[in-house]
Amino acid sequence: MSRMHKSSRGSSGSSNPVDKKQPDWLDYDEEEVAELVLKLKDEGHDPSQIGMKLRDEYGIPDVKTVTGKKVTQILEENDAQDDLPEDLSNLVEKASNIKEHLGDNKKDENAERRLSLVEAKIRRLASYYREEGRIDESWKYSRDDQ
Score class of each variant (00 low, 15 high):
18 V>T: 14
79 D>I: 01
86 E>Y: 08
36 L>D: 13
143 R>T: 15
128 Y>I: 11
137 E>R: 01
80 A>T: 07
8 S>E: 07
76 E>N: 13
25 W>P: 03
74 I>A: 02
111 A>Y: 00
28 Y>I: 06
87 D>K: 05
12 S>E: 07
17 P>A: 05
117 L>P: 00
62 D>R: 07
97 N>R: 08
44 G>K: 14
137 E>D: 05
77 E>K: 14
131 E>Y: 03
129 Y>R: 08
34 A>Y: 00
144 D>C: 09
123 R>A: 12
118 V>C: 09
21 K>Q: 15
51 G>S: 09
65 T>V: 13
51 G>M: 05
138 S>Q: 07
137 E>N: 08
13 G>P: 01
35 E>M: 11
6 K>V: 04
73 Q>P: 01
68 G>Q: 06
8 S>N: 06
29 D>H: 13
142 S>G: 10
117 L>T: 03
102 L>C: 13
90 N>S: 13
61 P>V: 08
103 G>F: 06
134 R>H: 05
54 L>F: 07
114 R>E: 15
59 G>M: 07
63 V>H: 01
139 W>G: 11
3 R>F: 11
26 L>T: 11
49 Q>D: 14
66 V>D: 00
73 Q>S: 15
38 L>V: 14
126 A>P: 06
124 R>P: 02
37 V>D: 04
92 V>I: 15
40 L>V: 08
86 E>D: 08
5 H>A: 11
110 N>R: 05
10 G>W: 06
27 D>N: 12
123 R>I: 13
119 E>V: 09
54 L>R: 00
138 S>N: 14
74 I>Y: 00
